[in-house]
Design a protein around this nucleic acid. Structure first.
Lengths: 335, 335
DNA sequence: GGAATAAAGGTAATCGTTTACGTAACCGGA
DNA sequence: TCCGGTTACGTAAACGATTACCTTTATTCC
């Protein structure tokens, strides 16, 4: 950090007081046109650089928000992040991205750091099922919003799609294409939303269509390509027969496609696959992946505005449920 | 931002001066064991929260660095970012990620904002070929380091692999597999490194192996899946015959695989493809993509340490060239 | 002409830390 | 006894902005 000129230097040079410089800088009133010119000239001549840290201290507001994400390895977070960032920037906020790690073990230090740095708000994206994390968020006294997840014990406002319904719809979609033996590559069951609810939706859809549920057709993953690949291999090796697969996310779905490839099979000929999230991974898959689309970018934008409401008006936002949509590509065929 | 207790409150409660509280807080000397206990108890009782903004103002150091990236849509940046973040966190720094946009049009406002926020340093990742961007970085008087790119006009320290050599090696690899008609899906030619140098490496490899260069076998992309797909389609439609494709990045390579899929062809049967970067996209492709691996995570780590050197010792780091490696998977076959 | 009002701009306290400098108490050695 | 050195603090001035509260001057209206 350099020894930049301050508003005091500007004030001296322009022969006014610091108050006047500040007024000019902030577009307030209380100075004449010619004073403004003198001040602006002094600023230009000195190469004056505004110091936001000083302002933040005085105003007790940093205009920084933090976004907590488990990992960015998947493109899932990218769209949310873009939505948050664009909205934040339009409103004069900067965002600090924090990878709390998939196990959430760095969360505690992170939240402490954020509190010290006086961030104005925190957005938690699809956080890992760590017991402590929502406690920390609830107790740190900083406005918080959750995206694509919820807290089971605290009333932290959230924005997400209805995972139960979406998963129900995905399964029903396969059924409508004539599939009867449908496997599920589920997420970790300690994840309340993406794990538990999506599995429940799958089961309910089977039930409502009088298809018996078989635990043997369910494999568990950790939402990653690698675990998806392994789970799909296990499924193929189990000897169970199936023609459709519902995946808990796109990466896992692509893992299933890769497992088929390794086994010399082809999707959707050998079996159909439907993903979840409609990330870039889904577009780029071979074959392109049919998937449940979440409006990730808008979710990010709205999450920011919910947070902004709390930061600026002090009132907690209402929870929001956004619509999903099935995007049809080439990974599902009629049987 | 709440009205937290300050060290003044702590000082009163513990019956000491603020200086003593500060000394305890910072692990300095100059207080007795029993005083320390009193201070720590007061801190605990009041629920005192340290205020980093005040310290930053006083010390003229924020311990925040910014990372400028065009977009995070690709997993390319993710590994670099992880490397930077881990290293930064170990050294007590926080990182602020800034998406300057693929066209770099937000760069100017961003750098101004970063200067105002008094960030201690900036890392520019693979920045877009905007004329102004390195000028801004060079002139903002904040320590800067470039990753996977370089500035043609300013001496900003950089860390990257030798793109010319790596691209030469990728092309030579295809040649060693018996390929003679090798196409290139190049990047934008206004990108000095990933665009120009990788094309040059390709041409030199052809030349050294006495294979005539044909401009018709070169298509240009913008490093994205979409432009890669389109370029590969154009190539297929051009009627030129080729058995191998060198891509400027993994996403473009996957675009080529998808173009083959759409045309009813298969990789590597119809043609072989070699990618660049070894991102997750390469692992997840069907077939898994043979690619040039850049040590992205270590690049991120080292970039941070180069920056740290300049921030803390004030001396610019030496440029660094890191080794590449060809990772063999299933997208290339012998002809 | 005088009172009221508005406009222009200055003074100084404040935000919550860090730290240079001062001081009092204590100890040990000659 | 006196001196020098150490330890354990306290005092107060920064850091660079914002802003409440003045003061001065000009303008307006009866």
């Amino acid at each position: 950090m350099l020894n930049n000129p301050t508003i005091k230097d500007v004030a001296e040079k322009a022969n006014v007081s610091v108050a006047t410089v500040s007024r000019v800088l902030n577009g307030l009133t209380g100075f004449s046109a010619e004073t403004e010119v003198r001040v602006r000239n002094a600023i230009a001549e000195l190469g004056y650089q505004f110091n936001a840290v000083a302002r933040n201290l005085k105003l007790k507001k940093t205009n920084i928000i933090a976004v907590l994400i488990p990992q960015v390895e998947t493109t899932f977070y990218v769209k949310i992040l873009n939505g948050i960032e664009d909205a934040a920037q339009n409103c004069g906020y900067s965002v600090m991205v924090c990878h709390v790690g998939i196990s959430g073990n760095r969360t505690q230090e992170y939240i402490k750091m954020l509190a010290e740095r006086q961030v104005d708000g925190i957005i938690g994206c699809s956080l890992p099922p760590d017991e402590k994390i929502d406690t920390l968020m609830a107790e740190c006294e900083i406005p918080c919003v959750l995206v694509s997840t919820l807290s089971s014990r605290y009333s932290i406002p959230y924005i997400r799609v209805d995972d139960f319904k979406a998963s129900y719809a995905a399964t029903t979609y396969l059924i409508s294409k004539g599939h009867k033996n449908i496997a599920m590559l589920a997420g970790s069951q300690d994840d309340v939303v993406a794990g538990v609810l999506r599995l429940k939706g799958y089961r309910k859809a089977l039930e409502d269509n009088r298809i018996p549920y078989s635990p043997k057709l369910v494999q568990y993953t950790r939402f990653s390509y690698e675990t998806g690949l392994q789970a799909a291999k296990d499924l193929l090796n189990s000897g169970e027969s199936f023609t459709g697969v519902v995946a808990c996310c796109d990466e896992v779905a692509v893992g299933a496609i890769s497992a088929a490839y390794e086994a010399g099979l082809k999707v959707p000929d050998a079996f159909s696959v439907i993903g979840y999230d409609n990330t870039r991974t889904a577009e780029m898959a071979v074959p392109p992946l049919t998937t449940v689309s979440q409006p990730l970018y808008p979710m990010g934008e709205q999450a920011f505005h919910m947070l902004q409401n709390e930061m600026e008006q002090g009132k907690k936002a209402e929870n929001q449920i956004l619509p999903y949509e099935i995007v049809e590509r080439d990974s599902v065929k009629k049987v």
